[in-house]
Design a protein around this nucleic acid. Structure first.
Length: 616
DNA sequence: GTAGGGTTAG
């Protein structure tokens, strides 16, 4: 082998990772490992991103660190790689063992590692401790005024869940540049203060595309998707550089809203711009299509992707689950296992929910057991909740109770809530009361639970029980969250609330409601009033029910959408039994496909039947 | 010849 003397050529050769060890050996033999220093640093960072340094401890990269002379450049490169790696805490050890005093670069990497750790910390206290000590250390070494450290500190505190500390760190910056302000915008939004974030954003002297992205993502994170999409439009009109990150946030917003038309538009926008279907973009698309009920399209995207990670697979598994395709969900999960992408806790939540939706009790149980035995994951409370739901929905109430009794963790409200819901489905008043007692002991103000219990009583004609629940809610100040249904027409999302009459086209809606009632009556439809929470006069009940938000949205859909178009409705709560029956009938009488997303899942209505087979 | 802010699953 001819000796390589030119550093550039060496670097080019080494950039083929496979040859890294050969180059290393060559350097050792030729005695050139120590110089020039930037080359050593380059090799360290190269080795750091190599898949050969499997465990994330970068043992091979460490071998490349020149001992004499030790350079901060090379050590910083290692810090950088550790901070970005899967085990960021290792950056702390490397930082402690630095042979030279850390500089401002070292601190930016340490801050980055701390940010990752704080975000994953078991408790808020742990997170605050990590963030605080790193910041203090930067201060001691005189690097706290470096803009790179400052912006990092703001995000670090936000990741630690301490917006107050982020604010304080930001306040100390004499003249914050665009990056620092953007970090603060993100920090405020992370802390749920989207309005404060927006104020800061609006006051920015200049904003680049990252600032726009931060604000849009901030709205999405705080559940304000409509504002996110509005800002996305503004961003395009302002001529800022819309990139993949922007589109991913926009897609997440569409997913939250169930806004399929807008979601498709974003998809074709990405396509027309020649954007590659990256893992992140593809995953966001799968999520969006799934949450808009277009699960077939979601799977097309999934199939077309070249690279898929655990998020991608989980999105797809979850999409099938929420659309009630339990068999396909389980099949895809098995495919995932055989592909070698390791599922995590979130994946199991998805597949267990899929089994539960489809009544696949034994299969679900097998998945649950395999979590620990095949994947080394200790089940979370959510997983126990899924199992109670799985047994409970299937009518195996004894198994559900026994399962709870055998839990190694203290059951949380989700577990009792699942039992309560199962009691409702299978009309077991006693068990429902028991679950409710347990639930109230943990979380006394759960509005959904009160409504469920009321429904259980109503179902057994126990009006005294219904009114007791109502009084209990009044006494405790528990308010039923108002039902809201949304429907997208012409790219605009219209929202309806119970009994709402404020829509500009309400006259037409009212006429359509009358037509719907009439045509249903002819088909022998009888209103089901038993799930009405409030004890109003019987004749009013039918009116109250007929104005449930999903019915208003449905009527509007019939009025405003072309006849050959399916009607898609997104509801914030669980759909009530009457509305479910009603929608089934409408799908038959009006010969329309109707897709309804409720709090938990999708209902695909067609020809008088629902994809959930009334099992929800 | 290493740095900072924005993105995906429950």
């Amino acid at each position: 082998m001819r000796p390589l003397r030119d550093p550039a050529k060496l670097a080019a050769a080494a950039s083929s990772q496979r040859h890294l060890r050969e180059i290393h050996a060559h350097l050792l033999v030729s005695g050139r490992i120590a110089s020039p220093p930037h080359l050593a640093a380059f090799l360290v960072s190269l080795a750091s991103s190599s898949s050969e340094s499997d465990d994330g401890d970068l043992s091979y990269a460490r071998l490349l660190l020149p001992r004499r002379p030790a350079t901060l450049l090379a050590h910083n490169s290692l810090l950088r790689a550790l901070a970005r790696g899967r085990r960021p805490h290792l950056a702390f050890g490397a930082f402690r063992d630095l042979p030279l005093a850390p500089d401002n670069y070292s601190f930016t990497f340490l801050v980055r590692a701390a940010t990752a750790l704080a975000a994953a910390a078991a408790s808020a206290l742990d997170a605050a401790l990590i963030a605080g000590s790193v910041h203090a250390s930067a201060l001691r070494h005189g690097h706290a005024a470096d803009p790179h450290v400052q912006s990092g500190a703001v995000s670090m505190y936000a990741a630690a869940g301490d917006v107050g500390a982020a604010r304080a760190a930001f306040a100390e910056i004499a003249s914050p540049d665009v990056v620092c302000v953007t970090a603060m915008v993100g920090a405020l939004a992370t802390g749920g203060e989207a309005d404060a974030a927006r104020e800061l954003f609006d006051g920015m002297p200049q904003r680049d595309h990252v600032a726009w992205n931060a604000m849009i993502a901030g709205y999405v994170r705080t559940g304000r998707s409509r504002e996110a999409l509005r800002l996305f439009d503004e961003m395009r009109h302002a001529g800022a550089a819309v990139g993949e990150v922007t589109l991913v946030s926009a897609l997440t917003a569409c997913a939250q809203l169930g806004a399929l038309e807008r979601g498709k538009w974003v998809h074709s926008y990405a396509h027309s711009r020649g954007m590659r279907l990256s893992v992140t973009l593809g995953t966001a698309l799968i999520d969006m299509y799934s949450k808009c009920g277009a699960v077939a399209t979601a799977m097309e995207v999934f199939d077309s992707m070249g690279e898929r990670n655990v998020y991608t697979w989980t999105s797809a598994v979850s999409g099938l689950a929420m659309n009630g395709m339990g068999r396909d969900c389980l099949e895809l999960f098995k495919r995932m296992e055989s592909t070698g992408v390791e599922p995590n806790g979130v994946t199991f939540v998805a597949v267990l929910r899929g089994c539960s939706m489809a009544g696949l009790v034994d299969e679900g149980r097998a998945c649950f057991d395999s979590m620990k035995s095949n994947h080394g994951i200790d089940p979370w409370l959510e997983h126990y909740g899924c199992m109670v739901d799985l047994y409970g929905r299937a009518g195996r109430l004894d198994d559900a109770v026994n399962f709870i009794n055998g839990m190694p963790l203290e059951p949380h409200e989700g577990v009792w809530g699942a039992l309560l819901n199962a009691s409702r489905i299978h009309k077991n008043v006693e068990l429902g009361q028991y679950a409710m007692d347990k639930l109230i002991a943990i979380e006394s103000k759960n509005d959904a639970a009160h409504v469920l219990l009321s429904n259980i009583y109503a179902d057994s004609q126990n009006w005294k029980g219904v009114s007791n629940v109502r009084n209990m809610m009044k006494a405790k100040g528990v308010k039923k969250m108002p039902g809201c249904s949304a429907i997208e027409v012409g790219g605009k999302v219209h929202e309806f609330f119970v009994g709402g009459k404020t829509h500009p086209r309400y006259k037409e809606i009212e006429m359509m409601l009358a037509e719907m009632s009439q045509r249903l009556r002819l088909q022998g439809y009888i209103a089901n009033t038993k799930e009405v929470l409030f004890d109003i006069e019987e004749e009013d009940k039918e009116d109250a029910i007929s104005l449930h938000s999903e019915k208003l949205a449905l009527a509007f859909g019939l009025v405003a959408l072309p006849e050959d178009m399916e009607i898609r409705i997104v509801k914030n709560l669980r759909v009530c039994e009457d509305c479910h029956d009603y929608t089934k009938m409408i799908s038959k009488v009006f010969n329309r496909e109707i897709v309804m997303r409720d709090r938990n899942r999708f209902h695909h209505f067609k020809d008088g039947a629902c994809s959930c087979r009334d099992y929800w």
